[in-house]
Amino acid sequence: MDIDRILQSINDLPAFPATVQKVSELMSDDEYAMTDLVNAVEYDQAITANVLKMCNSAYFGLPRKISSLRQALTYLGRRNIIRIVSTVRISEYYRDVEGYRLKAEKLWEHSVGVALMSRILSEKIYGREESWLFTTGLLHDIGKNVLGEFVNESFQKVMSLVSDENHSFLEAEQTVLGINHAEIGGRIASLWHFPQEMIDTITHHHRPDLMEGGDNTGAYLIYLADQVCMMMGIGGGGADDLAYRGLKGAMEKFKIHHRELETSMILLSDEIEKAKELIDLV
């Protein structure tokens, strides 16, 4: 059975490295000690190199060139530290996803786009940033890294449902393979012990309207960010691009109008240019 093989390949994924959890724990304590933070990060050499690279990226806009880890962590601020550490770690799980006819670097670029857009929308809608949404944006399509291989094996079947039977790509995955990439993403997030709201959001990022129980606000927001990135072709080119359902309730949910969505698209183009170092991680 496909479904058993698919679930097995989720279990075969490596555990999510401890650095991110460690950093998040430290950061949640208001009086965290800088030394503890430096120790937690320093231990992880790949992260240290990338933290330095990203600090000097235009996206974080630090006024001077950063050359040591302690200096970096001092200047970055709590939110950016968590963001950088999780970004670097998550990027390591990206693979070419043949079933979607997409390279790892494109899928990653799309994920960064959704993370940046979720920040823009969250600031527009709530007047503040919800930092868990950024990480959720990076992870929303993580399931494709597992499902890609299986979609590839049944590509013709999946594609004919999409092209001839008016299935969305998600529905075609479900029909042919018995599970879809969003649900797999949720299972991966659960395996990695991410908070429940992130798991639910990833699981329902294409159909926030079908979410039962819990708060669907995050799922709607990631949904909107994802659709906008697909329309703008950010990290685009895949076989499934745009073959997803437009939900009428999404813009009404946030009382957001077309004009605001278009302004957000312009903001996102600027952010994408500034975030080159993030995108180049993969």
Binding site: Q227, Y244, R245
Partner: peptide, 14 residues
């Protein structure tokens, strides 16, 4: 100028 599926009155940017 592509669109999402069933995008009636919504996301009509394409």
């Amino acid at each position: 100028g592509a669109s999402l599926m069933d995008d009636a009155n919504f996301f009509r940017i394409g």
